[in-house]
Amino acid sequence: MNPELQGRVFPPVAPYLVGREKVREFSRAVFAANPINLDPEAARAAGHADVVAPPTFAVVVQEATLAQLLSEPDGGIDFTRVVHGDQRFSYSRPIVAGDELTATLAVTSIKTLGGHSMVTAESTIVDAAGAHVVTAISTLVVRGDE
C-alpha cells in the first residue's frame, strides 16, 4: 500500500438519492422490524419526514467512496487481500427516505503491523443543503504475503 495515501481527500461521489423502498428492502435484510423503518405513517407519527434507515444503512452510501479508494491507481491496494477490520457510523441526524446524500472520502490513517497494512477511511456524508448527516469510518486490513 502506498503510504502517501495518508491524508488524501477524494472528490465527492455522485449524490445518492435515498428511496423509500430501498430503506424498506435494507431494513428487511438486517432483520429490522421497527415500524419506523418500514411504515411512512409510523415514521411521521414519530416526527420523521419518511421511513428512517437502519443505523448501518450509511454503508450503502459509503460504498462508492471505498470503491474509489480501492481503485486509486497509485494506491497499491490488492482488493483480493482486503478484510474489513472495523466500522463506525457517527450520526448528526438519521437518514430518511428522500434524502439526497453526498459522500466524500478522506484517508485518515495508514499503518503497517506485522506484514499487514491497515487503512482507515472516513467518508463524510452530507445532505442536499450541505449539512452533516453521518460520518462512516472503515478500517480495512490488507493482508500481507503469507
Partner: peptide, 18 residues
C-alpha cells in the same frame, strides 16, 4: 437496541470490530 430504544433515530453512533 433499536427496539428497546423505540426509534432507530435514537442510535446516534455505532461501532464494531470484526
Amino acid at each position: 437496541v433499536v427496539d428497546w430504544a423505540g426509534d432507530p433515530a435514537r442510535v446516534v453512533d455505532y461501532q464494531v470490530r470484526f
